[in-house]
Design a protein around this nucleic acid. Structure first.
Lengths: 141, 141
DNA sequence: TAAGTGTACTAAGAGTGTTAATACAAAATA
DNA sequence: TATTTTGTATTAACACTCTTAGTACACTTA
């Protein structure tokens, strides 16, 4: 379910928080779905249960999950999570642009990069482009 | 010359490295310009000289500066620094796009964000847009 | 010669993250 | 009902990194 990166500078509990958050955002973990138990996930990742407990506590503090003693931990309202992720992405982009401008990058160059990378990733993941949507809907007729 | 952020998760020596690197990239520190001495910068930032020494050692390891015992530390070839910064920015953008796609953002939305943020930052810094370049060159006649 | 420079080294302290070992309350289950 | 499973809390210990402190040495410059 989760892969840890020990080369990552961030602590394990924070990686777990981010990974689980992403799984909720992309829909793998749906609303009210049960998360693996603290001890089970700890065993699965070969780390201490306390570390998972810390991750779950953080997720609950942020309102991403809710926990019930004796029952388990469950995914909270996903729409608010998605909204938060959206604002985080916007914030990161703003910082990036700020840095890019200082480094002398042009707006045109950035747009080119975005376009190129977008199609490249769609090619890698076998995703369909907007341009191809027409052909796709043809099949459905 | 440099402002430290003690709320930042990154260690001080790494912040110093990044700040100095940025100063070289944006042209404040030109090629072969002398950097402040280890002890002077340490006093200026109110931190231990060892910490600055570590930052300078890292900068030299990366080929951004060269140091001469008894003389001082100086800015190395800035073009290679700029090239590296460019590839770093590209890499960061790729990661961001990957995350944005997973979160369900559309390419159009991203382009809109880039355009909006670009003009906003130019407005904040009093920078001139490409569209205004004609008027600017008029003045020079 | 004296002052300023980079560089090296050891020791100590502080902070954080992680593990370990229990323990308890509540819910689910056999 | 008894057992298991769940979340939660607590304390101690350990490891790792960052930072500071103090000292020392070689080299360049004024």
């Amino acid at each position: 379910m989760i892969l840890l990166d020990y080369k990552d500078r961030r602590p394990i509990y924070e990686q777990v928080v981010e990974k689980l958050k992403d799984l909720m955002i992309c829909g793998v973990l749906e609303q009210d779905a049960q998360l693996p138990s603290v001890r089970a996930l700890a065993t699965d990742l070969s780390i201490n249960p306390n570390t998972i407990q810390r991750a779950y506590a953080e997720l609950e503090r942020r309102g991403f999950i809710y926990s019930v003693k004796g029952r388990g931990s469950f995914v909270a309202d996903t729409s608010s999570i998605r909204a938060l992720k959206n604002s985080e992405l916007k914030k990161d982009l703003v910082s990036w642009i700020q840095e890019a401008k200082r480094a002398g990058l042009t707006e045109d160059k950035v747009h080119t990069w975005v376009v190129e990378e977008w199609v490249r990733q769609e090619y890698l993941t076998g995703e369909e482009r907007e341009d191809d949507k027409s052909r796709e809907s043809d099949k459905k007729i």
